[in-house]
Simulated scan of single mutants.
Amino acid sequence: MILQTNRLRLRPWTPSDFNDFIEMNRHPKVMRFFPSCLTPLQSIESARRLSEELQLQGWGMWVVEKRFSKQFVGILGLQQRSAEDGILVKPFKEIAWRLHARYWGQGFASEAAEAVLEYAFEHLNIDAVYSLTALVNLPSQRVMQKIGMLDTQANFQHPRLDVNSTLSWHCLYKITQQQWKATR
Rank of each mutant, 00 (worst) to 15 (best):
V129H: 11
A134L: 04
S140E: 10
I147E: 09
L138S: 09
Q145C: 06
N137H: 04
D127T: 12
A154Q: 15
M149S: 08
A115R: 05
D162Y: 01
R142L: 01
V116Y: 09
Q141D: 09
Q141H: 14
S140M: 06
E122A: 13
T152F: 04
Q157Y: 00
A112H: 10
N155W: 00
V136D: 10
Q157C: 06
S140H: 02
Q153S: 12
E114N: 08
P139W: 04
I147S: 11
T152C: 07
D151T: 12
M144V: 13
R142H: 05
V143E: 03
M149W: 14
Y119V: 01
S165F: 02
R160K: 13
L167T: 14
Q141T: 12
V129A: 08
A134E: 04
S140Q: 06
Q153N: 11
V163P: 07
L161I: 14
N164C: 08
E118K: 12
E118W: 06
T166Y: 12
A115F: 09
Q141I: 11
S131I: 05
N137C: 01
P139N: 07
Q145W: 08
T152P: 09
I126L: 14
S131M: 03
Y130T: 13
F121S: 11
S131L: 02
L161E: 09
F156T: 06
L167N: 13
V129M: 11
Y130C: 11
Q153A: 12
R142K: 11
I147Q: 11
G148A: 02
S165G: 08
L167R: 15
E114W: 10
N164D: 15
L132C: 07
R142G: 00
T152S: 08
F156E: 01
A115L: 07
L150Y: 06
N155Q: 03
E122D: 15
K146M: 01
A115K: 05
I147D: 13
E118I: 05
N155R: 02
A113H: 07
S140N: 11
N137Q: 01
T152M: 05
D162P: 02
I126Q: 09
L138H: 11
I126W: 05
A112G: 15
K146L: 02
E114T: 07
I126C: 09
L150K: 12
F156P: 06
Y130W: 08
Q153W: 04
P159L: 04
L135M: 08
